[in-house]
Design a protein around this nucleic acid. Structure first.
Lengths: 241, 241
DNA sequence: TATTTTTATTGATATATATCAATCGCGATA
DNA sequence: TATCGCGATTGATATATATCAATAAAAATA
């Protein structure tokens, strides 16, 4: 009955689904497509629903599809040797996942897992190739997207190698507030372990830093919910540590 | 007399210079250009010579040009707060430098510095934009290039966050041998400090690991020259540590 | 060649962070 | 309500790596 569910889900958002779905995101790389192109792309796409914890894409499998996240929150995980994990970033509603290496080796270089319930659609990579060929603006948008991710990863790399733990935690909190949840007391939906995995440190260490911030009055913590009280202080810690 | 020198250098490699120059590199993204397109691109390019240590591109300046390295070796440096440096990778003969963010913010996100003498040409970013628009194959090649760099950085990030020092040094040595110098006793041309900056560790720590490898008979070291004696062992250390 | 300056190496020590183990809190289950 | 189980928290300790300081070697300069 799997296929059935997919059909049903799609029927709700017919007509240029993917363009509509990204109207308010900055990542809207589909705006530049003509109706025909959009039709082509949307025609064979598959709409899929994931429950929290489910794996959307698995590292080292072949990258035959691109994924558009229409609703929900997912985490991008680089899996290392011996169940070591590093969460590279989160993807929220209105994001595109090109999967790591569609243009190079057609292999996924990371795993994507649902944090909340996730609605997304899978688009065949071939369609993307076709669109890159036929629409240069689209190619341009993809280059932009790629570039942006590149820069983000670079900043991450520099941060993790050059900052002490407080700086890294400050960076994480600011990232969550300003780039993912976009509101102030925000519910991370992530466990302490997952938050720690975003900073490349141990859960215990992460908790200790969080406690420090809390007792300094920089943030308020209530379970998975974080409240930034002194963003200036966080920015300072990010720069200095 | 600066301009004069540039003119002279260029005259040696007239006619589709950039395509010719990359004949044997895998990075040849210019193969797909028509003669006209090539002409357009090459016409206003500027050939420049750098001495060892000179800065080719500087972080945080505006990214108005793309650089093709025709001969020599350069290092890509991410500069952090307070003269902390991280050398991201090396670029050797036949490489292209898109500079970090030409498609996003037009800002360079890293510094590039000559290690040996470097011959390169500067191509106006506008030409690149034009080519992306007019030639989809070229866009495709750029996407590939971007993707490859993304993956390399990802592996770097995972390695640096998840491995102990011996694993990171092993990775570095294998990278230098198999991806940059492509021969076995190879002369790094880099100081110990620079090598350490590629692994995100201290010079002293780096030297200690190198010494360990040496006394284990895995490598032989003579000044800046490295000889890999037991690649299997290095690969093992890379995986385990 | 002699001398100065830089770079590489080694050793002793400090410290940031991880590991290990115990306890706490709290929702789920009975 | 009682009990189970699991994530969060805290504490004590271990360790990987950095820092600091001294020496050795090599390169640059006179």
């Amino acid at each position: 009955m799997e296929p059935r569910r997919i059909e049903e889900a799609c029927s709700k958002c017919k007509d240029h689904c993917c363009a509509r779905c990204f109207d308010d995101g900055e990542d809207n790389i589909f705006n530049c497509l003509t109706n025909n192109e959009l039709e082509l792309m949307v025609k064979e796409k598959r709409h899929v629903h994931f429950n929290p914890g489910e794996t959307i894409l698995k590292q080292n499998t072949s990258a035959s599809h691109v994924v558009c996240v229409k609703r929900g929150l997912a985490k991008i995980i680089a899996e290392g040797e011996g169940d070591k994990k590093l969460i590279l970033r989160l993807v929220a509603t209105h994001s595109i996942l090109t999967g790591g290496g569609i243009f190079v080796d057609e292999i996924r270089h990371f795993t994507v897992q649902a944090v909340t319930e996730v609605e997304c659609c899978f688009i065949d990579s071939d369609k993307i190739y076709e669109l890159v060929s036929s629409n240069s603006q689209f190619a341009f948008e993809l280059l932009k997207l790629n570039n942006r991710q590149n820069i983000q990863m670079l900043n991450n790399l520099v941060g993790i190698t050059q900052k002490y733990m407080p700086g890294r935690v400050a960076d994480l909190i600011l990232y969550l507030k300003n780039e993912i949840f976009l509101c102030n007391p925000f519910d991370t939906r992530l466990s302490r372990q997952e938050l720690a995995d975003m900073t490349g440190m141990t859960m215990e260490s992460f908790i200790r830093i969080l406690k420090e911030f809390k007792s300094s009055g920089i943030i308020a913590v209530d379970g998975g919910s974080l409240h930034v009280l002194d963003e200036e202080a966080l920015a300072l810690i990010s720069r200095k540590g």
